[in-house]
Design a protein around this nucleic acid. Structure first.
Lengths: 135, 135
DNA sequence: GTACACACTGTACTATGGTAGAGAGTCAAG
DNA sequence: CTTGACTCTCTACCATAGTACAGTGTGTAC
């Protein structure tokens, strides 16, 4: 049961034109077509599109997301290649997460200061991030 | 010892034009000027700019970063307001971090599968994220 | 067989986050 | 006092990530 582009769009909560755009950018592979030229998507295309939107929400560019989506193990071949790409990606995710947690701690400090009625005149987020500045 | 725009740019690793752009967008407050009209920045402006770049790397828009930079406790006044904004921001950071860790786990699974010579034909990241799809 | 929703391509426009260049003034060294 | 590096404003351009629209074809319900 193939889906039309309209159904995929509705399912994933995006515009039809966005799906065509993703196709042009190589994030979605070219689907089959009916004789009339209508795109025919497999049902799980919706999941792929949702993934794209979530990853964008996390601050990845479409280029990066294209890379994420390309990561998969194909029959043991080129495994080393894929595994090292996966490792590198994982490292970047973790670094990102660490920085988020640093901001989190800064905010917590601020909230505490606030509760105690102390004023922090300088920006606490900015201060809190200073130690990590050189990487 | 005030800094010229060129020194701030060099210190923060950005273009001069970018600093003027940030000023227009309200991320940097208008600095004092010399009689000749040259901008005069306090030394810690460099830190502020570095913070902006890091936050951008974490996927925040300039608008969001403007909000982050505005969060500070001013002499106990408007504390409730600021604290609730800080809480909300912290919640968003944590949600973001959780999603990153979800992707992290997906990658780890893939790396394990790879080591064991198993092929995962579907995209493992995509699969791993499915449970979280509905929020 | 004619509405009407939906699909197709192609082009053009939008917002965000910058970057580049013109034309002019400024500062510091020699 | 001139040369060169730096700064100023203003306008125009660029890439990314879409969105909108024109003009045309399709599919189905009545």
């Amino acid at each position: 049961m193939a889906l039309t582009i309209g159904r995929v769009a509705k399912g994933a909560g995006v515009e039809i034109s966005t799906l065509r755009y993703y196709e042009r950018r190589g994030l979605l592979s070219r689907p089959g077509r009916t004789r009339a030229g209508y795109r025919q998507y497999p049902e799980d295309e919706v999941l792929r599109v949702r993934f794209i939107r979530r990853a964008q929400g996390l601050g990845f560019t479409l280029e990066e997301i294209r890379g994420l989506l390309a990561l998969r193990v194909r029959g043991g071949k080129r495994c080393g290649e894929v595994a090292s790409a996966a490792h590198a990606t994982r490292d970047r995710l973790r670094a990102r997460c660490r920085e988020l947690l640093q901001m989190d701690r800064a905010l917590s400090r601020m909230i505490r200061a606030c509760r105690q009625g102390r004023a922090t005149d300088a920006c606490p987020i900015l201060e809190a991030l200073e130690p990590g500045v050189d990487q």
